[in-house]
Design a protein around this nucleic acid. Structure first.
Lengths: 227, 227
DNA sequence: CGGCATCCTCTTTGATACTG
DNA sequence: CAGTATCAAAGAGGATGCCG
């Protein structure tokens, strides 16, 4: 990317990560940890393969991404974020929080991947009973399942399924998202078609609901997602 | 900008503000409040005038910018952020904080505007004596002066000068920035050429120095800049 | 002068095909 | 699997013209 040539930290940051796709590559690596080229390509539907390889190289030479030749049995290249790259998390958190307003409307042709729930889950859900038993929540949306693990105050999301989930939410991604963001109560989401199976009370532990009134503790360092 | 077509709030946010120059336009409007076209052009050195008019119109139709035909004596169009646009501040804060790492090195041909100190000032300075007397700090860097007003716990920055400043800092922008960010003590900055005139003790009130040890209160809602 | 619109060139992107 | 090669289309940058 052509530099803005401005001595301003925002412009400097955009010089490095302002290119198209760059921040989304960081998103995937933050959510999933080490990724193969193919994993990245799958997590970035629509990217052209030449652009992906260009961007990875740029992020690498900017010191945000590290390439690791994994030994057998993996025997492939894995891409990781460096520390500087991982420090972009607050940027993605802020962007993700701001962008939720554009997700109320149905997707209409948009691609979806279950792991993209990781950011909303970390942003909106909070384990209000850190001493309680660990929880597993399975999310089934658009053929791309994901699992939220709640344990000891942390909220982690990963792609995949869980046979022994305490709770399963199945339905359109926007219903799950609006539920997490507080725009819908569980009952309202169910009325709109969200299937809630299992122990629905675990939602009380996670959602910023009526008890523990809204706006009490804005945001500190909470549990984060990991691969 | 072409949509990413992903049902992810980060991608949706980038669909709206991911275009080149868009976030920097928001930066200028956040720092200075209502701006004329010419003000924006001056605050975005390097932008082509057709791009500026394109971007303003895009931001307008996205609902982030509002156009106001000011009556005489101004008799010109003023551009403002809408509420949705102003809510991008946490995004710019996070970006600005992350990008500071790229400002340690000298600018070398970069453009500079005094008002760009507004973000570092709000991010790094804190009025640790909200009951103390109001303060005026004049910054003189690269022919583009700015003033920081500290009063009752808020830290506001605007372009311009102050005849009766309590403190004047004159020197290279990176010296002032590193001083604010905690990378240099006042004495070290002075050794490197920063001219500190006036009551240097006001810095103790603002810098996160040795008393009130580092990392105690990370970041709550603090004073913000205004035009 | 403020607020654009036009024209032109150059760079970046996207789609697809191909390779070790 | 992890890319490179090719090429058409879109976008960015720069100069300049227009109109109140």
């Amino acid at each position: 990317m052509r530099s803005y040539g401005e001595y301003c930290s925002i412009a400097k940051a955009l010089d490095v990560i302002g290119d198209r796709w760059s921040l989304l590559i960081v998103r995937e690596l933050l959510i999933r940890g080490g990724c193969r080229y193919t994993d990245l390509k799958d997590g970035l539907p629509g990217i052209a393969t030449n652009l992906l390889s260009d961007r990875i190289r740029e992020l690498e030479s900017a010191g945000l991404v590290r390439r690791e030749d994994a030994p057998p049995p993996v025997a492939t290249t894995l891409f990781h974020l460096t520390e500087a790259g991982a420090e972009l998390r607050p940027v993605l958190d802020a962007l993700g929080r701001w962008g939720v307003r554009y997700m109320i409307e149905p997707a209409d042709g948009d691609q979806f991947r279950g792991q993209w729930f990781a950011f909303p889950a970390s942003l909106f859900l909070r384990d209000r009973d850190p001493g309680g038993p660990p929880l597993l929540i399975e999310l089934r949306a658009a053929d791309s399942p994901a699992v939220i693990e709640v344990s000891g105050g942390t909220v982690c999301t990963r792609p995949g399924t869980a046979a022994d989930a305490d709770l399963t939410l199945a339905g359109a991604p926007q219903l799950i998202l609006r539920l997490f963001a507080g725009g819908l109560s569980p009952a309202q989401a169910a009325d709109l078609g969200l299937q809630i199976r299992g122990d629905a009370r675990v939602l009380d532990r996670l959602l910023p609901g009526s008890p523990d009134a809204a706006g009490s503790t804005p945001a500190g360092a909470r549990g984060r997602t990991r691969a």
